[in-house]
């Protein structure tokens, strides 16, 4: 095993903190948009637009930690936390989170954990969206019409995930690096000496 593959404590804690922080952000989102959230729930296709936001932890965790398993671990913790906080979906969010995290993990693995640039982020967003879409395609959407609903839903999920989770996470890392909080990570070291 390459030495860089060993997880430092800060890798573990930061991955988990990303998950916890997004737990708080989703909580705040529900308070702010409670009413519209209801409307989204009543028309599930619209939810796909927001789907990408739920998938940010997987891609962001991978881009910051840069270690095998980071995307998977971050999304798994995020899912467990939403279950611990009493998310109404119960324990099923845990396998669902694992499936979603696997998508992003696969993208970074295809690139041999060597590329962390925009294309890698977009691929991770796309694949985590794909895995989320496949899970929903069978688990939740099986009773709906294939071409009018299931296929468009899956495609919209992937588009949203590529843009929001993929490009969005990449932009987040770019914005976080100058604040100094990523100094102990490769993602933060690419700025100039100060």
């Amino acid at each position: 095993m390459r030495r860089m593959d060993r997880w430092r404590t800060i890798d573990i804690v930061i991955a988990a903190i990303i998950a916890v922080t997004f737990g708080v952000i989703f909580w705040a989102w529900n308070i702010l948009w409670g009413a519209t959230g209801g409307a989204f729930a009543f028309f599930p296709p619209a939810q796909t637009l927001l789907y990408g936001v739920w998938l940010i932890p997987a891609v962001l965790g991978g881009l910051i930690i840069r270690k095998p398993g980071a995307a998977l671990f971050t999304e798994a913790v995020a899912a467990t936390i939403s279950a611990l906080l009493g998310a109404q979906w119960g324990a099923v969010v845990i396998p669902q989170g694992l499936v979603q995290g696997l998508g992003a993990e696969l993208a970074f693995a295809i690139l041999l954990y060597r590329s962390w640039r925009l294309p890698a982020a977009l691929l991770a967003g796309l694949l985590t969206g794909l895995s989320a879409a496949v899970f929903d395609f069978f688990a939740w959407n099986a009773a709906y019409d294939l071409w009018d609903y299931r296929v468009p839903y899956a495609l919209l999920t992937m588009v949203s995930s590529t843009i929001v989770a993929g490009a969005g996470s990449w932009l987040l890392v770019r914005a976080l690096a100058p604040t100094g909080v990523l100094d102990r990570f490769g993602a933060g070291r690419e700025r100039e000496l100060v």
Binding site: T9, V13, I14, T21, I25, A28, L176
Partner: peptide, 30 residues
Amino acid sequence: LFASTAFALLVGALRRGGRLATAMDARGFD
């Protein structure tokens, strides 16, 4: 406004996370 607040939260959380990790190592976690 929501995005700006969320970003500030993330910065603060990551900084706290870094300190927490150091404190855990100081108590032999690694």
